[in-house]
Computed example of a mutant assay.
Amino acid sequence: MIKKTFYFGNPVYLSLKNAQLVIKLPEIVKNNTLPEGFKQTSEVTKPIEDIGVVVLDNKQITVTSGVLETLLENNCAIITCDSKSMPVGLMLPLYGNTTQNERFRQQLDASLPLTKQLWQQTIRAKIENQAVVLSECAGEEIKCMKVWAADVKSGDLDNLEARAAAYYWKNLFKIEGFTRDREGIPPNNLLNYGYAILRAVVARGLVISGLLPTLGIHHHNRYNAYCLADDIMEPYRPYVDRLVYGMVKKGLNYTELTKELKAQLLTIPTLETNISGKRSPLMVAVGQTTASLYKCFSGELRRIFYPEM
Rank of each mutant, 00 (worst) to 15 (best):
N189V: 00
P35R: 15
K174P: 03
A164D: 08
K143D: 05
V207L: 02
N159K: 02
G96Y: 13
L265H: 14
N129V: 00
A229Q: 09
R105P: 02
L211R: 03
C296M: 09
L114E: 00
E300Q: 15
P47I: 15
I51A: 08
P93S: 13
E183W: 00
N189A: 01
G177L: 14
Y193S: 02
A165N: 05
A291M: 07
L72S: 11
T115V: 15
F173D: 05
L211G: 03
G37Q: 12
K126G: 07
G277I: 00
K146W: 03
S42T: 14
N188A: 01
F38W: 11
I232F: 10
K170N: 11
L301M: 15
A77H: 09
V132Y: 12
A225T: 03
S15R: 13
M1Q: 07
I79H: 08
A196R: 01
F305I: 01
D230L: 06
C81I: 06
L261S: 11
Y294Q: 08
L301H: 14
T64K: 10
P186I: 10
L228D: 10
I175T: 05
T41H: 12
A291W: 03
V132F: 09
G287M: 09
L282E: 02
E256H: 13
L282M: 05
I28M: 14
I23W: 09
N171E: 10
G277V: 04
I142D: 06
G155S: 03
L172C: 01
A200I: 03
I123W: 03
K250Q: 13
R163K: 14
G194I: 04
Y168A: 05
N75Q: 13
K259T: 13
Y7P: 02
D50P: 04
S276H: 06
V284H: 00
L68Y: 05
E176L: 05
C81A: 03
N192H: 00
K249Q: 13
I123V: 15
K30T: 07
E136V: 04
S83P: 03
K295G: 02
P47C: 15
A196K: 02
N192V: 02
K174I: 06
S65L: 15
C81V: 06
K278H: 05
F6R: 07
M233G: 13
L112T: 11
K295N: 09
Y195E: 03
K249T: 02
A203V: 09
I23R: 02
V22I: 13
Q288I: 01
K259C: 10
P113S: 07
G287Y: 04
L92T: 06
L228V: 07
M91K: 08
P113C: 08
I51R: 04
A229C: 11
Q107T: 03
